[in-house]
Simulated scan of single mutants.
Amino acid sequence: MSTPKYSQIDTKALPSNIMDLRDDAFYDLIRQVSGKRVAELPTFQECNGVDSFLGCKDGTAILQLKSDQLNDLKKHSRVTLTDGTIALLPGLESSANNLMKLLKKKREEINKQV
């Protein structure tokens, strides 16, 4: 028997009304769960709730775009290596990925209840 995809993820700390959270309430929750820098990503992208955030397949993809408007966001999210390549901070990437998994699992649990 195979293990469910998100079996190791505990959603108990998330509020039962998470699908209703919007804007500041949603961003505040992300800050609590994943930290300030991770919360800056959906805030900047106007992903103001669970569904819009999960609709972004990769919440960190915006950091690959070339735009002066992203400079402040990039400054705190990436590092330039000595060879000139740019890398996303590993902790930020991991936290963003874990947040996506957590929210997906919570949405699945809520959908099963309906």
Rank of each mutant, 00 (worst) to 15 (best):
Asp72Cys: 10
Thr43Gly: 04
Glu46Cys: 06
Leu88Ile: 14
Lys74His: 09
Ala13Thr: 08
Arg31Asp: 13
Gly49Asn: 15
Thr80Glu: 12
Asp68Ser: 13
Pro4Tyr: 08
Gln113Arg: 10
Leu29Asn: 09
Asp51Lys: 13
Leu21Pro: 13
Ala13Tyr: 01
Gly49Met: 02
Thr60His: 02
Gly84Ala: 05
Asn48Gln: 04
Met19Thr: 00
Ala25His: 03
Leu99Phe: 09
Arg22Gly: 05
Leu29Pro: 14
Arg22Trp: 00
Ser67Pro: 01
Met1Leu: 15
Arg78Glu: 11
Gln45Cys: 02
Thr85Asp: 02
Asp23Met: 14
Lys36His: 14
Asp68Val: 08
Leu99Tyr: 00
Met19Ile: 08
Ala96Ser: 14
Leu63Gln: 01
Leu103Gly: 01
Glu109Cys: 00
Gly59Leu: 09
Leu54Gly: 04
Gln8Ile: 07
Asn71Lys: 13
Leu99Gly: 02
Ala96Tyr: 07
Arg107Ser: 12
Tyr27Ile: 09
Gln113Trp: 01
Met100Cys: 06
Gln64Thr: 13
Met100Lys: 14
Arg22Gln: 15
Ala96Ile: 08
Leu54Arg: 12
Ala61Pro: 00
Ser95Glu: 11
Ile86Glu: 15
Ser7Asn: 07
Lys106Gln: 11
Lys57Arg: 07
Ala13Trp: 00
Gly55Val: 03
Lys5Gln: 07
Leu81Ala: 08
Asn111His: 08
Lys105Asn: 03
Gln8Glu: 06
Gly91Glu: 08
Gln113Ser: 10
Lys104Tyr: 01
Asp20Ser: 15
Arg22His: 15
Ile62Ser: 00
Pro4Cys: 02
Thr85Phe: 06
Gln64His: 14
Asp20Ala: 11
His76Glu: 12
Ile30Gln: 01
Gln64Val: 05
Ser7Gln: 13
Leu99Asp: 01
Val33Lys: 15
Asp58Pro: 06
Ser77Glu: 02
Asn17Lys: 04
Leu41Pro: 03
Gly49Gln: 06
Arg37Asp: 14
Gly59Glu: 00
Asp58Arg: 09
His76Ala: 13
Ile62Met: 03
Arg37Cys: 05
Lys106His: 07
Leu92Gln: 04
Gln8Ser: 14
Ser77Asp: 10
Asp28Asn: 15
Thr82Cys: 07
Ser67Asp: 15
Asp58Cys: 06
Lys5Asp: 03
Ser67Leu: 10
Thr43Phe: 08
Ser7Asp: 10
Thr11Gly: 02
Glu109Thr: 08
Asp10Gly: 03
Glu108Ile: 10
Lys36Ile: 14
Glu46Lys: 15
Glu46Ala: 12
Lys5Tyr: 00
Val114Trp: 05
Ile9Lys: 04
Asn98Thr: 03
Leu70Tyr: 07
Arg31Ala: 06
Gly59Ala: 01
Thr80Arg: 10
Thr3Asn: 09
Gln64Ile: 01
Lys12Pro: 00
Gln113Lys: 12
Leu63Asn: 07
Ile30Thr: 05
Val33Glu: 08
Val33Leu: 12
Arg22Asp: 09
Ser16Pro: 07
Cys47Thr: 04
Ala13Val: 15
Pro90Ile: 05
Glu40Thr: 04
Gly55Cys: 06
Arg37Tyr: 12
Leu54Tyr: 04
Thr82Asp: 09
Ala96Leu: 11
Thr80His: 11
Leu63Ala: 05
Arg31Asn: 11
Glu93Cys: 10
Lys75Tyr: 08
Ser7Thr: 05
Lys57Cys: 02
Gly35Thr: 06
Cys47Gln: 07
Lys66Asp: 09
Ile18Cys: 10
Ala13Ser: 15
Lys112Met: 10
Glu40Gln: 13
Ser94Glu: 13
Ala87Ile: 03
Lys104Pro: 02
